[in-house]
Design a binder for these strands. Sequence first.
DNA 1: ACATTCTTCGTATGGTGTACGGTTTGCAAG
DNA 2: CTTGCAAACCGTACACCATACGAAGAATGT
Lengths: 268, 268
Amino acid sequence: MSTESTGRGEPDRTLRLLWRGRLGDPLGSRGPKQRSSVDEVVETAIQIADEEGIDALSMRRIADRLGLKPMSVYTYVPGKAELIDLMVDHVAGEVALSALEGSLRERLTAIARLQWEEYLRHPWLLAIDTSRPPLGPNVSDRWEWCLGAIDGLGLADLDMDRVITLLLGFVGGPARAYLDAERLRRSSAESDIEWWERNAPLLEQIMDPTRYPISGRVGQAAGEAYEAPADPLGAFAFGLERVIDGIEQYVASTGASSEASSAAGETA
Amino acid sequence: MSTESTGRGEPDRTLRLLWRGRLGDPLGSRGPKQRSSVDEVVETAIQIADEEGIDALSMRRIADRLGLKPMSVYTYVPGKAELIDLMVDHVAGEVALSALEGSLRERLTAIARLQWEEYLRHPWLLAIDTSRPPLGPNVSDRWEWCLGAIDGLGLADLDMDRVITLLLGFVGGPARAYLDAERLRRSSAESDIEWWERNAPLLEQIMDPTRYPISGRVGQAAGEAYEAPADPLGAFAFGLERVIDGIEQYVASTGASSEASSAAGETA
DNA sequence: ACATTCTTCGTATGGTGTACGGTTTGCAAG
DNA sequence: CTTGCAAACCGTACACCATACGAAGAATGT
């Protein structure tokens, strides 16, 4: 990704772009006026990705929407990889981070819900290779905000990092499942039931209950409970409780809150 | 993805391909002999993805390695999306699923480790949009095997599904982080330290401790503990314990194991 | 007025997935 | 043994893609 060197001791161009808001643009104002702006490019890109998926996102399409020719986009952004970093940071700044209140469980739930909703708003976030999140202002603010939810509980600094990573990482699973189910329903050239009926003979031949006793039972239970192969919303709720249980247990086992905890009512 | 209809009442071609091993090939043996085979195509594709990443995987490259012309690959596989489904199922069949033994914790740990190692062996698994895993034989076997680890504990069928989904979903996070760190170290055109030094002035200007007190503290702690921005292996171990704690707690809270549990020593 | 510097964009390179249609192959039926 | 024909193979083509390079034009500082 954004690993291209920009010439010896120069700081990353990506980094400068990410923080362009808090940084005075150090550009000499020589040439012709820019017809567009980095923000416009990023927002257009997000729009395209939201509407038509990340695969439909191309430099050409961005240029088209902005009334530019393809190569002009590179005036604003070094390349596609960097653009995606900017997109990620941009969407991280969409929602105001309201002060986290209530019990630890409530605070962690709020964080998870925020992430959940972000995935629903921008499904492409789940499709990009998010090996390392960009070190932009909004991502950084978000991270600070998340850590704040578990500060002062007596957790070691490193464990704080891990707790938040665990919580946020968890959300991706059910979010993916939810969006996938939605997509299928929406594009329903073929409904789940139709698919199943069409493939029933083959599946019966293949999925003999001898070989898959438990899967068969579980799958049938799922199919009867709701008319779908899965229940992502339920899975989200369920998993969240388990994860928070695990976290709470760890917090309790660690030297219990030496400092005054940041919130009043800590209901275990 | 593999949603193209193959003509009214016909079962999915992908499904048939996935189960080609357990299905007699119903192909009329008319034309010329096939010079290659579906398995060879899939294995070559996996090889390329392993060696050079999923981006380097193209139909043309597969054809080259097999001594075919590009379009001939489509004789074996309907398209790239379907091929990826086949790849996923293929790697799921690489390791023998040895009987799970020991305590619940040990069994769940074994499952997580299997997934972890699979990600290390095939990093591209983390980069593909795995909205819904393919319903192939190896993926199915694996699923049955996973469910078997928590069968007979008194969990509702639906909860069993959710527990496994939670556990497997968790692994992706630290695995991604681990592989990313590895990749950086390996390709070290620039070490972490060099990057940091180069960007130090900008970062200091940006990351004022007033705005990021906790992140600053946590980041520094991480940087001192190990010379890296993160510790994925530790995060994996830590998160796994928390997740299992949460699961165990739930199992205990639910009607405690009505049936005989499949293993002897259940150490809480 | 001129030099400089930056934006814009035309062109080109080397990729991608895959639709389409033609050629070759080799088994099966006449 | 011939022939029909389905299937494998492949040449060509299309519509894209990211982006390197360099020319043309615009606005500014001197």
